[in-house]
């Protein structure tokens, strides 16, 4: 199990305030996540550039920048972060296509079910944490391996 004590940060982007408020309230009631909400994709990108995040949820149809373009930019910045898209019906086809193109973690259809949303979110965060852990382990192993090699060299030197 991933250590849940560490606070996860969830970024939510939707041009509709009501969706943001609803999701924010729900997550603050049911989880310990830090929730950051944005009605503008640009503002969200600014935030993500400067802060570590664990998962990002975005609406698909937004006036300035659509969800797919936004998540593509997030992928560039933070490839490890799971990306979830929230879609209405009319754009479902395109959204599914985008999952393959941009590499999305999951899509959620409006109107969403809170439990489903929570499961998707948890899975995403867990994956993100696991990846992070894996990276750390690899780094540790690499470091240990480097140390081991240094030690080996020392040993060899001593014998020569």
């Amino acid at each position: 199990m991933v250590d849940d004590k560490e606070k996860s940060t969830v970024v939510i982007v939707d041009d509709e305030e009501m969706v943001l408020t609803s999701l924010n309230s729900f997550l603050s009631l049911e989880t310990e996540y830090t929730v950051e909400t944005f009605t503008s994709a640009k503002d969200a990108l600014e935030y993500i550039k400067k802060n570590e995040i664990d998962v990002v949820i975005s609406d698909y149809l937004m006036p300035e920048m659509d969800g797919i373009s936004f998540l593509a930019k997030v992928k560039e910045m933070r490839p490890q972060v799971p990306r979830i898209i929230l879609t209405g019906y009319a754009d479902k086809e395109n959204a599914i296509k985008a999952i393959n193109d941009v590499g999305l973690f999951q899509y959620i259809e409006k109107p969403w079910d809170n439990d489903d949303l929570l499961i998707v979110l948890r899975n995403g965060i867990e994956r993100q944490k696991l990846m992070k852990k894996l990276e750390e382990k690899i780094a540790e192993i690499n470091k240990a391996y480097g140390e081991l090699q240094g030690l080996q060299t020392e040993i060899v030197k001593t014998f020569i």
Partner: peptide, 22 residues
Amino acid sequence: GVAHEINTPLGALNSNNDLFIR
């Protein structure tokens, strides 16, 4: 189009009600 338009507020309503229940 209508379904799409309805789904966003409906999503919020449905989610909020769920929130109230919880």
